[in-house]
Each structure stands twice: as C-alpha cells, then as structure tokens.
Amino acid sequence: MDDRYGTDVLAAGWRDKGRKTSRPVAAELDLVVEVAGDGYCGAITRVENGNVELEDRKGRTRVFPLGAGFLVEGEPVALVVPTAQPRGRRRTASGSFVADDGRARVALPSRILVEGRHDAELVEKVWGADLRTEGVVVEFLQGVDLLHDLLRDEPPTAERRYGVLVDHLVPGSKETRIAEQIARGPHGVHVRIVGHPFVDVWQCVKPAALGIARWPEVPRGQDWKTGICRGLGWPSETKEDLGLAWQRILSRVTTYRDLEPALLGRVEELIDFVTAP
C-alpha cells in the first residue's frame, strides 16, 4: 500500500522534501534581486569581500553577505561571485569601454584644470584610463583664484582649450563670480568652467560608498574638512590626519557609481570640450 506519509519519519532530510532549493546565480552588476527575509529589492551595484551591495529605486543602499536568501523573479537563488569573462569588451571605472589597443595617446595641447590635488586624484581614479586614451592631461591650480594668472601667462587658443572644474559653483559664490568674469573676457570662448555645488570634492563621493547615511553637518566657522573628520570620528588634528582621511575616502571609490551625478556630468562635459576637433 502506498503510504503518503512515508515509512520513516526520522529519515534524514524528511523536513526538506518538497522545499525549493536555491540555484546559484552570478551576482552581476545591475541584476535586480529581492531579499527573501524582508522584501528589500534592489540592483546589484558592488560585489567585494564576500558581500553584495544593493541599491533600491530611491537610491538607498544596503549590504548583504553573498549566498542564499535572495529571490530573482520570485525564485530562490544563492548569489555567488561572478566568474571572469575572457571575452567581451571591458569597461573603465567611468563606464566607458576600454580602448582596443589600450595605448595612451600623445598629450593634447588642451587640458583639464582642477582646483586641488584631491580633485585631481579623484578624476584620475575614475577617468584616468579615458584621459590617457584621449591624451588629456589634468593639472591642479591650487585654487581658482589663480586662474586669471594662468590665462594671462599661457592664454588659451582654438587649438589649446582649457576645461576647468571648480568646487562650490553656486549662485553668489566667489567661484561663480570668477567664472562669469572669465566667460565675459577675451579668453572665454576657449575656456569652459564647470563645477559641482558641494563645498569640497570630498562630498562628491556618495555617502553610501563610505557606509554612512549622509555627510556630517559642519558648524559655521569650523574648518570644513576638520569638521567632517570629527563628525565621522576620525583623527583630525594635523594635515597628515586630513590627508589620511582623504585617502580613506578615495579608497572607497572604485567606479563612477560611487560619485554624485552633479560631478559625473561636469567631468564628461570637460572631456568633450577639450577633445572636440
């Protein structure tokens, strides 16, 4: 006689009969998955150190360990580290396709200017491969106040254009006044000045990349970088402390996805400007 209850209730695995197993799925970027435990749903934006980062439609991110506990189209899956793909075109940190020959071009006479070393290091980390392919050199000014002197000593031309990236380019700021003066001046046609609205390029890194909800508020009158470090509980007493803080921030940037859109579009605009025929 067929016993629908089975013959041995103590047999191994009797609780798992009929239960769906999780099939392994590669944790590819942009794959949308659901967390089985709480219903959180998001696209994969990062896979590292045995964890996967998901970003929901509101831009909020959460980190989970790889493995089982996820759903794809309602089916249970176990997320695993993607295997390297030997074929197909690779992308740079900026999202561009890697050039076929991978060789840098001879430097163009046109160049991109940024306000300081941190700006230059961030641009290099995300757009460095693209800039070398295009032959674009990035230099830092040590302050937008020195831009007038540079244009006087090395005036731009149609063949040598300057793209300038500045911090805190908002209505009424010193940076905006300087940009407007240059745009109206004799060199304006060969200079493109753009910027982001943040006090410093540090804020161009998304808080989620650092594992925080938002950047700390800095009291008026306090040095901004010092205030940020104190708000995050980092050492802040010396220039070395601030330099190490920046390296800590920069180390969390691996792709353009870690940066605010307010910076992304502006850098792309400058690259187009200085490489236009």
Rank of each mutant, 00 (worst) to 15 (best):
T83W: 04
W127P: 03
V25K: 12
G143M: 05
A107C: 05
V137E: 15
E115N: 06
L71D: 06
P65G: 04
G42Y: 05
A107I: 01
S94V: 00
G88W: 11
I112L: 09
V63L: 08
E139A: 13
V126D: 13
A158Y: 11
V98F: 06
D145K: 03
T133D: 09
G116A: 10
S94T: 00
P156Y: 13
Q85N: 13
R87W: 14
P155Y: 14
E139Q: 11
K125A: 14
L54E: 10
P76G: 09
A93I: 00
V81Q: 15
V106M: 11
G143T: 02
C41V: 08
V138K: 03
E124Y: 02
I112N: 13
D38Q: 08
L147E: 09
L150R: 15
P155W: 14
G74C: 08
A43S: 14
G37A: 15
V126L: 07
G143C: 02
A43W: 02
D149T: 02
R161M: 09
T157V: 06
G69F: 06
D145S: 04
A104K: 14
A36E: 15
R161V: 03
L150I: 04
R90E: 11
P86W: 13
D119V: 01
P65V: 00
D153H: 06
H118T: 13
V35C: 10
E55F: 00
V81Y: 12
D149L: 05
D119I: 01
V106W: 05
G135D: 07
R89A: 15
A120S: 12
V80N: 03
L122I: 03
P82S: 10
T61L: 02
T133C: 04
R91H: 12
L147M: 09
H148K: 11
Q85P: 00
R132D: 11
I44N: 09
V114K: 10
E28C: 08
P109C: 07
D130R: 12
G116W: 02
T157Q: 10
E73H: 09
V47P: 05
V47T: 07
D38P: 01
Q85Y: 03
G135I: 01
R89N: 07
P156Q: 12
P86G: 02
E75K: 15
E154Y: 14
A36H: 07
L131S: 11
E121W: 05
V137L: 10
T83H: 11
S110H: 03
A129I: 00
D30N: 14
V144T: 08
D101K: 14
P155N: 09
V47M: 04
E48A: 15
A104Q: 13
A158G: 05
G116D: 13
G95A: 09
R87V: 01
V77W: 08
D56R: 12
R46Q: 10
W127D: 10
G88V: 01
R62D: 01
V33Y: 11
W127A: 12
P86N: 07
Q142C: 03
D38C: 05
V164D: 04
L66E: 07
G128H: 01
R91S: 13
K125Q: 15
V81C: 07
L108T: 11
L79F: 06
G59T: 03
S110N: 07
Y40C: 04
S94D: 14
R103W: 02
D119N: 06
L141D: 00
V98H: 12
R111D: 06
D30P: 00
G88R: 06
R60W: 02
G50V: 04
L150H: 14
V138G: 05
E121I: 00
V33P: 11
A43R: 13
G37Y: 05
K58A: 12
V98E: 14
